[in-house]
Design a protein around this nucleic acid. Structure first.
Length: 316
RNA sequence: GGGUAGAUGCCCGAGUGGCUAAAGGGGAUGGACUGUAAAUCCAUUGGCUAACGCCUACGGUGGUUCGAAUCCACCUCUGCCCA
């Protein structure tokens, strides 16, 4: 066991970065040094038995360091930010109460955002209202709904693009459930607590990140992604809508349905993962107070760990 | 060797005389984002320019025409069929 290092006294550290950049290894290495437990900030690792495609930490690592927010729901269940926040809050309290450090690590930007800033007071989604709104869209057309939103909540309507069905639905749903415009509710943050996180960002040259993605996908295939997807599909409960669009799963499912050749599906996984990375980069630009570590091409995990420890020490 | 279909922007692909720097899709790039977020949505995508605009472009060369990616001739290459 590595020695616990007492020189660093941040109690909550968040590691963010593009998919496959190396967050997992750093989180693990750092956890060993800082007597920490890890919270996964990832919308897909929450699903049990979706192991290979979501690149969960391997069993050896999970044996050494307690991981939270991994394998917390069935693939047939839907999951969303509010569940994430609720479970994470509990895990954080729990870890801190045992005198240990929290290391949150992941790339789901919206979850990161809520972790830093909280969610505003609003009701969760209501499937009956949503179904009715979707029906309205099908019969009346989306523009009518956008106009309806404009009458009850002009501010939200001006911010939400007329084609953005999901946001229009949510805004109308909140209006119907609360009688208040979503734009008004969005003003009141419940926990604006960004400051108590020490945020480390991992970054590499973009070309290199793409190469790592390709390599990771190749390894996923070798580890048996195809069989993993097959056995998920063979389960009695069907995959939830969220789980079945996960990158690596959606494409293999399309292949098994005869819509894509196998090689074509793998290529798609690479493309979609690269797109994810791109979207993540865009998100991360909006986060302030990130201590970015630019990883050189020849750096190994030890280099990254040391750099992270330096960054922490420098901030003391 | 003969016949036939074709060659379009990074890729696929529409376009059969002017409204075409050229539909649409993909990819790429930039952006938005608060309860499905690995979701959803937007913008840009030949070059130069702040812009008017100019230049280069639809396999090659030449021709017809006021005007061609679109018509004609020859050539090159590719797919398929017959020998």
């Amino acid at each position: 066991m590595p020695k616990i290092d007492k020189r660093y006294n941040k109690s909550k550290i968040l590691i963010l970065g593009v998919t496959a950049v190396g967050k997992g290894s750093l989180a693990f290495d750092l956890a060993g040094r800082l007597n920490a437990e890890i919270i996964s900030v990832d919308s897909m690792k929450v699903y049990r038995r979706m192991d290979i495609g979501t690149a969960k930490p391997n069993p050896q690592r999970r044996l050494q360091i307690p991981y939270h927010l991994i394998d917390v729901v069935e693939p047939s269940e839907s999951f969303s930010v509010d569940r994430f926040l609720e479970l994470t809050q509990k895990a954080i309290d729990d870890i801190l109460s045992r005198g240990k450090t929290v290391i949150a690590s992941g790339g789901t930007a919206m979850y990161i955002k809520t972790l830093l800033h909280g969610l505003f007071e609003a009701p969760p989604s209501d499937s009956s209202i949503r179904n009715r709104l979707r029906h309205d869209i099908a019969t009346l057309g989306l523009p009518v709904l956008h106009k309806r939103l404009a009458t009850v909540d002009p501010e939200a309507a001006s911010r939400i693009h007329p084609n953005d069905e999901k946001r229009i639905i949510r805004a109308l749903e909140v209006w119907e459930l609360t009688g208040k415009p979503i734009s008004a509710l969005q003003q009141q943050w419940s926990t604006p607590a960004a400051d108590d996180w020490f945020v480390i960002g991992l970054r590499r040259d973009k070309e290199l990140e793409s190469k790592r993605i390709n390599l990771r996908v190749k390894l996923m295939v070798e580890k048996g992604l195809l069989d993993e997807v097959k056995s998920l599909l063979a389960e009695p409960q069907p995959l939830s809508p969220q789980a079945r669009v996960a990158i690596g799963y959606a494409e293999i499912i399309a292949h098994l349905e005869g819509k894509l050749g196998f090689d074509e599906a793998i290529e798609q996984i690479k493309i979609n993962t690269r797109k994810l990375a791109k979207a993540q980069r865009t998100w991360f630009k909006t986060f302030r107070n990130v201590h970015w570590i630019d990883i050189p091409a020849d750096a190994d995990e030890a280099w990254i760990l040391n750099k992270a420890l330096d960054t922490l020490a420098a901030a003391e």
